[in-house]
């Protein structure tokens, strides 16, 4: 009985972590990331909630680098006043951001069922 409750708690926490990750990528950046880090602190290694909290942190850190750093580099190298810079930055940012959102959505669904990303 105790393990069932532990499992439920872990799945709930995993779902919260995946949701925080998704929110950070969409409508509630920064605050959701702080929430994600707080959830991460409550988890223990080798559990499903820990797995999803770590996954969420990784997705968001990689997204931040890939989106902001690469876009900043494009602006720096292409020049702020060049129309071509904005062609690349806007197209790139939109499609890559969406890919991260869809990825985080899949992670959320997997967390709901208490599964790792791929099994």
């Amino acid at each position: 009985m105790k393990s069932v409750k532990t499992d439920e708690l872990q799945i709930k926490r995993a779902s919260d972590a995946a949701l925080a990750s998704l929110l950070n990528l969409t409508i509630l950046p920064v605050i959701s990331f702080i929430a994600l880090l707080l959830i991460h602190r409550k988890t223990q290694a080798d559990t499903i909630d820990h797995y999803h909290a770590v996954l969420g942190v990784k997705i968001n850190v990689i997204a931040a680098v890939v989106l902001f750093l690469v876009s900043a580099l494009m602006i720096l190298l292409g020049g702020f006043d060049s129309p071509w810079t904005w062609v690349y930055v806007i197209s790139y940012f939109t499609i890559v951001h969406t890919i991260f959102i869809v990825f985080a959505l899949w992670a959320l669904v997997r967390a709901w069922s208490g599964d790792r990303l791929w099994s």
């Binding site: 959505l105 899949w106 959320l108 669904v109 997997r110 709901w112 069922s113």
Partner: peptide
């Protein structure tokens, strides 16, 4: 979300 969820 719905499609991912039911397929999962």
């Amino acid at each position: 979300l719905f499609a991912f969820n039911v397929v999962n």
